[in-house]
């Protein structure tokens, strides 16, 4: 094994510090007992977490984000599963254009999607509604769900379906008793990843949310634009903790290294 020298390890320490510093800072500042941004004194104060719990705007935004994430991730998976089966089972490489098309939202900047949906939904008279947000979110998170479901679908030996059929199973029985259970890890991790991306989305949603349907990232962004106070650091700390919990779940389900580093993009 070729080892890292002292210079390399120093570089590494600085790099890791650079990656973690702002996140740690957000969490640390959130425990202050002052009315402005400052380092907390001992013992840490939960003043701003109490304030957050009583802030109706943030609570509503959190609810919106939660329902939006749950609904859009579920719809994205429901659309992904049959599409993934179609692509994975297509002989030769004829399904490649369909796969590329279904992954194409990854190539469109979210600000462009925001502009396009604002125009589209305004024309349809539904801009600012939950349904409009839902449709937009399903589109941008579907590629993430599809990638993971597709990876699982490629892993299912098509002979298993043939074996089930030869034993007398009808197409729906093959799907329910053989294919679906084998796709389940991919579906679950695809759903989680899609949920996270919906829950975190800001750029596109800024264009689409109205005061009644503001999501948590948009609420945070609007708040930061006016003033940066310990309240947003408390909200952000909770988001960091939530992300860590979901990461741990994804790691158990799928392996985070495979999820983040395994795919080409």
């Amino acid at each position: 094994m070729i080892r890292n020298g002292p210079v390399a390890l120093l570089f590494h320490a600085v790099f890791i510090g650079f990656m973690l510093a702002p996140l740690v800072l957000v969490c640390v500042v959130s425990f202050t007992d002052r009315a402005f941004l400052s380092l907390p004194s001992w013992p840490p104060s939960l003043r701003w977490y109490h304030a957050l719990a009583e802030n109706a705007d943030f609570i509503r935004a959190f609810r919106t984000s939660l329902w939006l994430g749950l609904a859009s991730a579920t719809l994205a998976v429901v659309l992904s599963v049959p599409a993934a089966m179609a692509i994975a089972r297509h002989p030769a490489r004829g399904a490649e254009p369909v796969r590329a098309f279904l992954l194409s939202p990854l190539l469109v900047p979210h600000v462009v999607l925001g502009v396009a949906f604002l125009r589209f939904f305004s024309g349809a008279g539904i801009n600012g509604t939950f349904v409009a947000l839902l449709v937009a979110h399903v589109l941008i998170i579907l590629p993430y769900a599809l990638q993971l479901v597709l990876a699982a679908a490629y892993g299912v030996d098509p002979r298993l379906g043939q074996a089930a059929v030869s034993l007398g199973a009808q197409p729906l029985q093959v799907f329910r008793r053989v294919t679906l259970p084998l796709l389940m890890p991919g579906i679950a991790s695809g759903w989680l990843l899609a949920f996270l991306h919906s829950f975190d989305e800001l750029t596109m949603t800024v264009f689409l949310a109205d005061p009644g349907t503001t999501t948590l990232p948009v609420r945070l962004y609007l708040h930061i634009e006016e003033t940066i106070d310990p309240l947003v650091t408390a909200a952000s700390s909770l988001l960091i903790i939530g992300a860590l919990v979901l990461m741990a779940l994804l790691d158990r389900l799928y392996g985070l290294d495979r999820l983040l580093a395994g795919k080409g993009r």
Binding site: F15, L220, I224, V232, L260
Partner: peptide, 18 residues
């Protein structure tokens, strides 16, 4: 690897706030 890649799953607003 997790320390470096994990932040990808945290909202950009939060990371920028830091």
């Amino acid at each position: 690897l997790l320390v470096i890649l994990g932040p990808l799953l945290i909202a950009v607003v939060v990371r920028t706030l830091g």
